[in-house]
Design a protein around this nucleic acid. Structure first.
Length: 267
DNA sequence: ATGCCGTGGAAACCACGA
């Protein structure tokens, strides 16, 4: 099955692009970020017509995350991360999809750094890392994916020297990402393509897409129970070239059908 | 080097994104 993550940058403004891509790629599971829509304005009907059922955590104007499943309903496990009752931003939602746990996240941007926004990013990352610790050790498959707003290494930036002081690439934020991954997660795309320059985001201006001045900031992490199922991956970068498109491209992985121990039954 | 583009919401500009 195909599982994808896609920062849509406005789920209503990009609806035609999203529907076109869903029809083309036909992913089974899709994690969306930056809905930029309040809870009641999520395009539930249009997505249902396209064959997808969804859970989502909306927010007026900004943020917002959703999980779509083709032909089945995701079962919500949680929304939001514990550790800060004052945090009202919609950046995390988690679902059970027939035994697969999927966490969909949108890490704060953090710029300008240093500053309160960067502090919020690092604190949010700490809360994510704490929650991820309980997910990674599950004996059932877990996928943690979304817009991490971190380029993990120099291979993930078109011009690393330009980004050293940026909230997406500072040493402390890269360390936060590395610290999360070393819990035992597999960075799917980097695992399959260890030496390749791969980007998932290109700025709208400075002709960034045409120049291939991109960043790899959208990641799909697998826990040890799921990692052996990883078969292939890709970035649908052509979608970034469509009219009225997001500044991110969809990223997907192909997973082998879940294996079940003899004698066990689904549900 | 830089929000130069783009979105949503409110207000006829602003906050925000990476």
């Amino acid at each position: 099955m195909i599982v994808a993550t896609y920062n849509v940058n406005g789920v209503n403004g990009r609806l035609s692009v999203l529907l076109r891509w869903l029809e083309e790629r036909r992913p089974h599971v899709v994690c969306l970020q930056e809905l930029k829509a309040p809870q009641e304005k999520f395009p539930e009907i249009d997505l249902a017509k396209a064959g997808y059922r969804a859970i989502w955590h909306g927010q007026k104007s900004w943020n917002g995350v959703a999980i779509l499943v083709r032909g089945a309903a995701p079962v919500e496990i949680r929304r939001g991360l514990s550790g800060d009752p004052d945090d009202l931003q919609s950046r995390y939602i988690e679902a059970d999809i027939a035994g697969l746990t999927v966490g969909c996240l949108y890490v704060p941007n953090g710029n300008p750094a240093p500053g309160p926004k960067f502090d919020y990013k690092l604190r949010w990352f700490e809360r994510l890392t704490k929650h991820a610790r309980s997910l990674v050790k599950k004996e059932t498959p877990v996928l943690l994916c979304g817009d991490f707003n971190v380029m993990p290494t120099e291979l993930d930036v078109y011009k690393p020297e330009r980004w050293t002081d940026d909230a997406l690439f500072r040493p402390d934020v890269r360390a936060a990402y590395a610290n999360l991954v070393k819990q035992g997660w597999t960075d799917s795309v980097r695992h399959l393509r260890p030496d390749e320059r791969i980007y998932t985001f290109w700025d709208y201006f400075r002709n960034a897409y045409a120049r291939d001045a991109g960043l790899r900031i959208d990641h799909l992490l697998l826990n040890p129970a799921l990692a052996p199922a990883l078969k292939s991956c890709g970035v649908d970068r052509h979608v970034r070239g469509w009219e009225k498109t997001s500044d991110h491209a969809p990223v997907w992985i192909e997973l082998a059908a879940p294996r079940r121990a003899a004698g066990t039954r689904k549900r």
